[in-house]
Nucleic acid binder design. Structure first.
Lengths: 344, 344
DNA sequence: CTGAAAGCGCTAACAC
DNA sequence: GTGTTAGCGCTTTCAG
């Protein structure tokens, strides 16, 4: 493995000069630089980032900390898209991503700061954490720069990027209301997720603004899981057959809800309208295709990475982004059955 | 940041002893060890892997080199599942994964060995490479241990894990033949992919064994892309309306083929049977659900990682695995229309 | 069982 | 412009 020492010897200069030349410092003779660069290339030199990191105290690596990258959790490619976005940006800006997966017990034994310090990551991007995850508390206490996805915590060293979940949910419910629905249920994720709280807020807001009553019994949790949502929806539709629409806090849960409806002989959308959230790939391929609120997951990761590197480079701008969402109208929602007319 | 030096001072021993105690060497007094361990814990010490790596010349990191992790390429979560599997195994065995994405131009400028040497990765896992990717040639020349996904190259330092693509394809086509089909086309990926070559081989083999003629015009490439496959299928079905079944080398292309058929007013499966490959998530959700050959992508990654670490630990076993596939029967294939009876 | 010393490859004062 | 020197945090001979 060739080192700057080898280059120095061949070029007949000191290692310092080699270091400076290769790192683009200005205070080195242009001819010497060219010579050094040429020799380095000839000798097929690559810098040792470990050694460099040891002295600069910067590793040029970002930790990507995600909960649940295990076999079962791949149904939506949310994590992967965020990861892709983050990686795209990070590598453009000269860093590399290292994966921290908190689901393997091996890593769980270590604290957040242990994980980070061992690898000397310069910063971390966190995704998929529950609101009460112990790691989250550590993030706040730690002074390692961190960008959170969908968790609004902010300090000198922590920022976040999220979407406007209240507005997104409101848009979905308003759409249903606009279609003529008055009895709209909510299948939410779970209270450990920030986005669930916000989406419920949007749901409530939309109903209130339309002067529609809020029924607590119409709000159920589906844990962001298709099967669990199916169970919840089945229960809901059985005990409240007058419901004509349900807004689900994820597309996966919308899928589950549709299955539940179908199992009861209900046609979607004619007898029951369903609107999802996320716009996962499945949403456009399922039958019926799911009307949903789209969020740009790639962008979520990209922006998080961008903010993080900004932070590392000392740019003192706000480290918060809120992305917008889009209503994607497809086939799973339509006006309610005309029986509602009898209500007058 | 607390170092072993700090611990040494507090514990009143030398750094050597601290190092040995913390690394579980046997030649240190049990009492001293306990004291050191206790102090390390109290001081919240984490080892600096950069420093360690610098001297041991091992970084405990594995590079995951993938082509195409960009925004557009996330339609099947193939890469993500392989990644998850690899990460699961790697982290169990005490390593971490660093992502090398060859789609960003930043990384493309660097050669394979540069990428690896800069980060001093101990080994790499490669996925999604085309057969003529320049990186691939470098892998062979390099002495860095490398496990390939779906590319059968083998040497002292390189191994691979793949599935039995010939058998998989053969199984698919045999299934179609068993259903009564005699005119079976193939929408393949592209010749730059090893798996395509093999799947074509399986297709041909199955037809031959059934004494069915091979028509070159019935074999088209869809580039593993839905849209491209749709175009290819449209062309194929238009010029050869007597085809009753098509085997696609990926589910995404099966989706495209179904769309093409539908656009021509053909019912799938009643007028055209379609069998896919991969068993991506979409396959079970689309309408009709796609009959396909399933491969365990998570396992692909897991095994690659396992072999790689074996290699790094000097275990001199074979570094090759061939996983089996499963035929998943769903709704996109059925016996051909009875019109074939007229053929007699 | 423990310590002193060297050195991994690199950067960064500081001097010339 | 360039070289000398020290040192990042750790492991590893080699002595004792």
């Amino acid at each position: 493995m060739v080192t700057i020492k080898d280059i120095a010897r061949v070029a007949n200069v000191s290692v310092t000069t080699v270091s400076r030349a290769l790192n683009g410092y200005s205070d080195v003779n242009e001819k010497t630089r060219q010579k050094i660069v040429r020799i380095a290339k000839e000798m097929n030199y690559s810098p040792n980032t470990l050694a460099r990191g040891l002295v600069t105290n910067k590793s040029q690596t970002i930790g990507f900390l995600v909960s649940g990258m295990n076999r079962s959790a791949n149904k939506d490619n949310f994590t992967f898209e965020v990861l892709s976005g983050a990686n795209e940006c990070i590598s453009k800006r000269g860093y590399d991503l290292v994966l921290f997966n908190t689901t393997t017990s091996k890593q769980r034994e270590k604290t957040y700061s242990q994980l980070c310090r061992e690898r000397r990551v310069d910063g971390v991007i966190m995704q998929g954490m529950k609101i009460d995850d112990p790691y989250l508390k550590e993030v706040i206490e730690s002074d390692i720069p961190c960008m959170l996805i969908d968790i609004p915590i902010q300090s000198k060293t922590v920022g976040y990027v999220t979407t406007d979940n209240v507005l997104g949910a409101k848009t979905a419910v308003n759409y249903l209301i606009g279609l003529g629905h008055k009895k709209i249920a909510l299948i939410n994720g779970h209270d450990d997720a920030y986005v669930s709280l916000k989406r419920k807020e949007g749901y409530v807001k939309a109903l209130k603004e339309a002067n529609l009553p809020i029924h607590k019994e119409w709000i159920l949790d589906g844990g962001f899981l298709e099967e669990q949502a199916q169970l919840a929806a089945a229960k809901l539709l059985k005990s409240h057959p007058d419901i004509t629409a349900v807004f689900c806090a994820s597309d996966l849960m919308a899928l589950g809800t549709i299955k539940a409806a179908r199992a009861m002989g209900l046609d979607v959308p004619r007898q029951l309208s369903v609107v999802g959230y996320d716009n996962i790939l499945l949403a456009s391929y399922s039958a019926p295709a799911i009307t949903t609120i789209a969020q740009d997951k790639f962008q979520l990761g990209y922006q998080a990475a961008d903010h993080l590197v900004d932070m590392l480079e000392g740019k003192d701008v706000s480290h918060v982004s809120t992305l917008t969402t889009d209503l994607i109208i497809r086939e799973s929602a339509c006006p309610p059955p005309i029986t509602v007319a009898y209500k007058k």
